[in-house]
Design a protein around this nucleic acid. Sequence first.
DNA 1: ATCTATACATATTCTCTCTATGTATTGACA
DNA 2: TGTCAATACATAGAGAGAATATGTATAGAT
Lengths: 114, 114
Amino acid sequence: MATPRESFKVELLPGTLDLLILKTLSLGSMHGYGIAQHIGRLSAAALQVEEGSLYPALQRLKLKGLVRAAWRITPTKRRARYYELTRAGKRQLAQEVSAFEQVVVAVRSVLRPA
Amino acid sequence: MATPRESFKVELLPGTLDLLILKTLSLGSMHGYGIAQHIGRLSAAALQVEEGSLYPALQRLKLKGLVRAAWRITPTKRRARYYELTRAGKRQLAQEVSAFEQVVVAVRSVLRPA
DNA sequence: ATCTATACATATTCTCTCTATGTATTGACA
DNA sequence: TGTCAATACATAGAGAGAATATGTATAGAT
């Protein structure tokens, strides 16, 4: 039912969402909404995680076995799906952090040749 | 005519290709193949620009008025399409460099909270 | 003569992210 | 009491960008 739109705004550097989610979950289990809040807060609102990006991403991560999910009740009495890292998720996080830093170095080496 | 494949490997941080191309062209006009070589060389082969990504990207940049193109003959006697930045392209480059750095800062603020 | 590197280009597929929309519940406040 | 904002989940659809695979062509080296 979605109607046509003018353009398409990117709030994230594509390819970094999984990394941001995995890192957030490394601090402890959290529900989707909380993950988005956390990323927005830590980045001083520079990174906005849209719900339409977030929930599909969480499902992909679950399908890949990088996170586990369970329904729980929040301290504010709401039902929410809490996610936590699996062992494979922790490995993946370490790998993605490293890959991200390497790519940044590589891009910068083009932007500012030695 | 392309047949199905197993997976999909990302050689670049998606969203940075335009930036890399514009930066390369800021050093002087260059043809597509040369742009890819230049990016690969400066990044010590960390960034591989595939031809199937490169040529469509150049066409998009041209369509947006960020680059101009003209057929010329290379020093090695081959015909090649040389690209150069337009004024708008130079502005866009400055803007994208700045945006890239800001996103890196933002992502790092999530990866390594102060 | 054949092979490698150079040089361009496109069709197709894939993946990710956004837009838009929907449901439901809690707590505040008028 | 009613309504509104914030919280919390989810999906369909569209759009964009990047890779895979393939094709053409030519210069120079072996």
